[in-house]
Design a protein around this nucleic acid. Structure first.
Lengths: 357, 357
DNA sequence: GTGAAAGCGCTAACAT
DNA sequence: ATGTTAGCGCTTTCAC
């Protein structure tokens, strides 16, 4: 049923070796022979068996992306970037979701079919989980490039693509301060997430630079989740002196926060100010104008694949057990953030009475 | 460097076959031997080469999902459902994005490494594209199960998971009629998308059942895209007699429509009514309360994988060239839709003056 | 320019 | 219970 290289060879009256040569455009084949073989391949609709090719030349062009939250549009964009570029370069990407669950992450990392996989992208669940880190190090030293996506690991030298979280947060909070806010709340992400930590640092720096005291009660954990950020907001609002502005550390925190605010009669940009880290385009389309820290997310995906590709190809000339790239300089890229003003950083602007929206 | 089954066999003083037996827990192995081999495997940290396994037993446990719009949260949810269930069943899924581009779809379908792939999920770009359909038929008759996801093909018998689009649309439009609307606009999806067609049919049926004339000018194409739906809305609003209510056929149409409305001073549920096919949770969190046709999207992903799994396993006992399941009954599942009322189906409700939101 | 044959790492008859 | 061996489909020296 399934055609093999032998069938083609027979029909073309040549040896399998020759067929292989024309398929891979390697080695010398007479023009006439080549044509004949190509014709047969075309008319028989023959496609070489990739598994056999992989086994024979030890490469699969398979990559994997381990992602904590498949449904989060942020990762949808990253994924878009990675797969698009990967397809261009002849690679395919396998997707695994951990749902942010460490056990699941360990499980996936452990059962990874490392022999048929050439590289790993990962947005780790926890920035200091030794089991996962150890697993990644094992991959890396086994010659499988690892590219961290968005979520960095402290004191490590893995390649990766990140964004300038601290600066983004700094800009956002500074913007709020410029608007006259002194009591600024922040809804943070998981304690063990480097992006979350950096954003908190940005918040502190901005306060510090303006000589505004850092107040512990204005910092609440939303764990990068909607439900918990709803609670966090509730907590902030119920303080003796509630903040007049809130900075939310990711898109889901923003939604949770907004949910609390709108369902309790607060109008953002009027009764309370809000700046979101990461854009939520749906809100903008829906007329909810939120000032946000924007970053080129799809491009982060592209860059992740670029880094991966360099790693994958820089080995070329070396012998199998000389892991040349391992010692080379680490490839870590950072994208810049940019604040997009839409009015939610203000408080009770006069326009809110006059204009229809 | 890389260990093989021979290395393990040697260290354990047995034959490779025995090692293979303990790895696969097949055949008889003495308890003592088994233990010895297992220990060696553990201490050497040996992992069998999956490619070689695949080549040898002709199975890879690799599935692929071909999706038109990776960034659309709808597909994010489907993907979540598929991968989660797939992981449970020991399968991995490769993701390919077509961006709705037919050429890209053909390309992907053509270069699919069918020998290392066991099944294909696809949300086709166009419901009557012969090239793609032919390719899918070839896969199916080649023994590779094909499961259509959300987007059906007319006059075909591919397996698939869909939703009750017509009924969902019918309910939505009926709801608008109940609210007193007579002039109802609809923003449709691509002409060659079965879900889009069915939703349009639902719209027509609802009008018909209430003896409201179908008026061509109230039907505009938004192509399931934001920008085009923005234009479509503009077109509706600029009619001599603009509709008092709009039904949008998917999440992106809704966003485009909403964008036009909010940026032109219309308040939904007050100045104009709107019902959306598919939920947009972000809006709800943001206080934009939109009545929508809801459906269990993640569950559609689960069900897609369930169907796939049945196909994959029902072959078990048959010989290679007896494609038994090909003739078996087709597996097509439909999920029910449910309308969620939030007020946007109304017009100028008195509450809009009194309540803060 | 082309063919023969030895692997790639594993599995599964078939022997013993 | 365990070993021998012939593939799985392709690539690639090494001859001719």
């Amino acid at each position: 049923m399934k055609l093999t290289i032998y069938d083609i060879a027979e029909k073309a009256g040549v040896s399998p070796a020759t067929v292989s040569r024309v398929i891979n455009k390697k080695g010398n084949v007479g023009a006439a022979t080549r044509k004949r073989v190509e014709d047969i391949i075309a008319e028989e609709n023959y496609v070489p068996n990739a598994t056999a090719q992989n086994l024979s030349n030890g490469s699969s062009h398979l990559l994997v992306f381990i992602v904590p939250d498949i449904e989060n549009p942020f990762f949808g964009k990253i994924l878009h970037g990675i797969t698009e570029r990967a397809e261009e370069m002849g690679y395919s990407v396998l997707l695994y979701g951990t749902d942010g669950d460490l056990d699941k992450e360990h499980q996936i990392l452990h059962t990874l079919r490392t022999d048929m996989i050439e590289g790993v992208f990962i947005s780790i669940a926890k920035d200091d989980d030794q089991v996962s880190i150890r697993a990644l190090e094992r991959l890396k030293s086994g010659g499988i490039p690892v590219v961290l996506v968005d979520r960095d690991i402290e004191n490590t030298i893995f390649d990766g693509i990140f964004s300038d979280d601290q600066q983004g947060a700094y800009d956002a909070v500074q913007c709020l301060i410029k608007e006259g806010h002194r009591n600024i709340g922040i809804i943070t992400g998981p304690e063990h997430s480097l992006p979350s930590k950096s954003r908190l640092t940005g918040y502190r720096m901005a306060l510090e630079d303006e000589n505004i005291p850092y107040r512990r009660e204005y910092v609440v954990d939303g764990n990068f989740r909607i439900e918990e950020s709803y609670r966090a907001t509730e907590q902030l609002i119920n303080l003796k002196i509630p903040p007049s502005a809130i900075f939310t550390c990711n898109n889901l925190s923003t939604l949770g926060c907004l949910h609390y605010l709108t369902s309790h009669g607060y109008t953002v940009g009027k009764d309370i100010s809000l700046i979101s880290f990461d854009e939520i385009p749906e809100l903008t389309y829906g007329g909810v104008r939120l000032t946000s820290v924007d970053r080129p997310v799809v491009e982060m995906g592209y860059e992740a694949m670029n880094i991966m590709y360099r790693r994958l190809t820089e080995n070329q000339g070396t012998t199998a057990n000389t892991i040349s790239w391992y010692d080379k300089i680490v490839q870590r890229s950072f994208v810049k953030t940019k604040i997009v003003l839409r009015g939610s950083e203000k408080l009770n602007p006069k326009e809110s009475k006059d204009k229809k929206l």
